[in-house]
Write a protein that binds this DNA or RNA. Structure first.
Lengths: 359, 359
DNA sequence: TTGTAGGCGTTATCAT
DNA sequence: ATGATAACGCCTACAA
């Protein structure tokens, strides 16, 4: 915590680590307040069980010394941490940031602290993070999506850590989750697209390995196509790419190189779609006149861009808040084991129009 | 980790929370592997100091039992946590998300875990978070800006926790920091604006209380105006607002209601500017023909919007990475006590043009 | 109401 | 190379 070598102050090595000695402990407080450590502990944890007079005295000393309980010791002795953990793929994606903010706010209301880790979409890394959070005594965990290593689930099960899978609701998955049905949602949007007469579809997907949301969204498009008598293998052109406006732009350009061109480019998320849109402008392609574009998530940029993006609105904050409540209930032993499906809503804005040549 | 009241399990109600009994400890592993706890500990921490044969045996048992060291106990005994903490105002702001991601990546490379908390721009809340992170044994802290309670600094000092103030470089502040000079940067941009002939300036600022970055940016505009012989009190119209595209739009509308209108609306950040821009379009005001608009930060939307936003580019990722390195060095005792000023760059794009009526 | 003392799971210092 | 064992800081029966 401090320099070991730097302070080569000649003689009486003036204890190069003079700070640690100064971290006050419960005992320091107790001694200085003239009470036992038990009393100090009570002042901090169950103030009502100590007479107001001594409590005041103790709290004063606590202030003076700037005492803060050692979390490790406390966890060790009390066997609970009032800490929840969350592992998200990345903080750079606004949809997680927003949901997490709500998650944290709800937890804060209940006196519990949130630890956040991000896995960079790597199941192995996520496994390590889960392990780390468990080791840190996380009372419960928020996870994104169902895709993870078998060991991750084994870890969770063995310790019987309450957890909830968020951002996804898959009726076929038995795990407790809160979110929406990505496949169904995208299918709904695709149905709208097909209703506009589009038959050649380009799809810009986020990377699907280790990401069930992305996979489901892709499947949703296929579902809708089949339902309309189309063959995804023939009429759907897929590009998988990383996250980012620039990536969406590149993918769009590639898609436009095909002959014949797709008449609509559906995107796995709004950021990709925003990139596609900007590229269309750059290429002088009219949207939705020549090509329609759709997104997913309905983040702020969806309304900002021009023409405004047709997309699927997802209740991120509600998901975060709901996840917190589920976990809180679970921890309290209330058997809220029912997954919750949140509604999404197709937002028809300006980037989706009829297929060119349609009456 | 367990409910205190709930499980009033009268008789044998199938113990609703039978997990805790099964959490393996070092001792369990030791017993099952037929070695001492010390050896197991060594296998985990200094594997080179234990013969390969026993090590394999031990690790096998570790696997079987799904053992994970108890963090609290470890912190207690080892007196270090390999954990850094970061407190940001909000996760919903992309500039922090991005910097934090880089911060975390750098830390991960060095085997240290990051704990993130957000203060919602409240100094009191931040103080509590600092305390919580210290209690959790954070070895070092990343903080945003200089504005915080006196007690917060007292806390930090008393425990001698290494910390770095990021997103800001204020030559007048002695504290170790990494970032850029918000005031100077905004002054530079404002000078450009003035050079385009603008004389009536509208400024949409983020809320300035508890936010020195916002204050400094505002001051920067004033500096530039004075340098050009203008009086900020007379020629600058200020609106302070919350974060968000919608808020920027509202503020812009309000600014446009003035007579005479400002010929340029400078914004404290890109998100506000994006909102202003969208509102201009909505109101049929030509940008930059009738009104120029500028942002700050150069986040992705700055290039996405049309016309593209003139703004100040800030190296968010470099800040995160640099902060990590500073902290790492500090912890290692390398006396890198020098604040680092990162360069910003004015990005002249399309939303800034000459003042109407200028030759 | 308050104090005493045992124990929580690891690490680290000595021995062996 | 490995094993005992004493901390580490706090909580919580239990006793007073």
């Amino acid at each position: 915590m401090i320099s070991d070598d730097q302070n080569a102050d000649g003689s009486d090595p003036a204890s190069p680590r003079s700070q640690d000695d100064m971290v006050p402990t419960l005992e320091d407080v107790a001694r200085r307040a003239g009470v036992s450590t038990a009393t100090v502990s009570r002042c901090l944890n169950t103030p009502e069980r100590v007479v107001s007079d001594t409590r005041k005295r103790v709290m004063k000393v606590v202030q003076e010394l700037g005492y803060a309980p050692n979390f490790g010791a406390r966890a060790l002795a009390a066997r609970r941490t009032n800490t929840f953990g969350a592992i998200i793929p990345t903080m750079e994606n606004a949809i997680f940031a927003r949901g997490l903010q709500a998650f944290q706010e709800e937890l804060g209301l209940n006196g519990i602290t949130l630890l956040v880790a991000s896995s960079s979409y790597s199941p192995e890394l996520e496994e390590a993070q889960i392990s780390a959070l468990i080791a840190r005594g996380a009372d419960a965990l928020l996870l994104i999506g169902h895709d993870r290593t078998r060991q991750s689930y084994a870890l969770l099960d063995r310790r019987n850590i309450p957890y909830v899978v968020a951002w996804v609701f898959d009726p076929e998955m038995p795990r407790l989750s809160i979110g929406f049905d990505n496949r169904k949602a995208m299918q709904g949007l695709a149905a709208q697209v097909l209703a506009e007469g589009h038959r050649r579809i380009g799809f810009i997907s986020a990377e699907r390995t280790g990401n069930d949301r992305a996979r489901d969204r892709y499947k949703g498009v296929c579902d809708a196509m089949r339902a309309a008598g189309l063959d995804p293998d023939a009429d759907l052109q897929l590009i998988e790419t990383e996250y980012g406006i620039g990536k969406g732009a590149q993918a769009f350009e590639k898609l436009m190189a095909a002959t014949p061109r797709p008449t609509v480019v559906m995107c796995g998320n709004d950021v990709l779609a925003a990139g596609a849109l900007s590229q269309a402008r750059r290429m002088g392609i009219a949207v939705p006149g020549e090509v329609s574009i759709t997104g997913f998530d309905d983040v702020e940029i969806a309304e900002l861009v021009s023409p405004a993006l047709t997309t699927v609105h997802v209740p991120h904050r509600e998901m975060g808040r709901g996840a917190a409540r589920l976990l809180l209930a679970l921890r309290a032993g209330e058997g809220t084991r029912e997954s919750v499906e949140l509604p999404v809503e197709i937002r028809l804005r300006e980037t989706l129009g009829p297929a060119p040549g349609t009456a």
